[in-house]
Design a binder for these strands. Structure first.
Lengths: 142, 142
DNA sequence: TTGATATAGTTACATTCGTAACCATTATTT
DNA sequence: AAATAATGGTTACGAATGTAACTATATCAA
């Protein structure tokens, strides 16, 4: 049991730092090359990976707030990277689907993502990298 | 070398998720009990731990943006939790110091922090916890 | 010295964010 | 079937954020 508080070994602090470090490295890519926000990138990636989804499904996949998803979808639609298809059974729902332009943007960012991933792997070493992934995954159930 | 992109095993994604999970658990405390933002909590904690500092020193300690620090300092000052002391050598500088009220707020949040820390430790187990801390620290040099 | 440059810190502005309120539609209850 | 509740999604509004411009002071160079 720890009795002394030390900010720099406090997990929320450590996590946040490391997370920004890792995230910003990749953010620079989608931000500078495509002028995308993180929410937009995440929505694009989710649709790219899972095909057509509703906004609510994107929310559950990503954990993003629904207003973020709503706005991201709107802005991606503006670029003509996705289309909305009204669901005929349930007219509240729109099925969201990447256009071919959206898919190639996604493909290009995937490549960049894999390159970036490799960079971090090289830095950490394969063992530490997978250890870290496992620990982070475990934390999801906290 | 990985050739397929999978969002859910992509490190920026994993990190961000885990970070939010861990951070929000503690944020609820300083937010609900003290109406503080993360920046404010971090500035308070830094001053609590290191004693009197200048704004720039807080920036280097925390990595926070200087406007965030400026605003956090202002708002903590409003609560009478810190005082500014003009430096007589360099009149651009203000030395920032917690008042006794600030110190007791800090002390109380430290206790909550230690409790929270213990909760995460228990969840992960001592070994995984320190493994994780080590990996996150390593990432700072990425 | 004085002019140029750098640093500490704040502020104006535009953007982003989260909460809550809000439509529209569907499901459930009575 | 009418009333009520629940759901998908958007929007209004206030708070928080980052960039860049700004003020004031200090340092450096000529």
């Amino acid at each position: 049991m720890k009795t002394e508080f030390d900010l720099h070994s406090f997990l929320p602090f450590l996590m946040h730092h490391a997370s920004e470090k890792v995230s910003f490295g990749f953010r620079d890519i989608y931000r500078d090359q495509y002028r995308m926000t993180r929410s937009e990138w995440r929505v694009l990636a989710t649709l790219g990976q899972y095909g057509a989804l509703t906004a609510t499904e994107i929310v559950t996949h990503t954990g993003l707030h629904k207003t973020k998803v709503s706005r991201a979808v709107f802005s991606i639609e503006q670029r003509r990277w996705l289309k909305r298809h009204q669901d005929e059974q349930d007219r509240r729902i729109q099925r969201l689907e990447l256009t071919s332009q959206g898919q190639s943007a996604f493909a290009s960012l995937c490549k960049a993502g894999i390159t970036y991933d490799q960079k971090v792997r090289d830095f950490l070493g394969e063992d530490d990298f997978s250890r870290l992934s496992a620990l982070l995954t475990k934390l999801n159930d906290l």
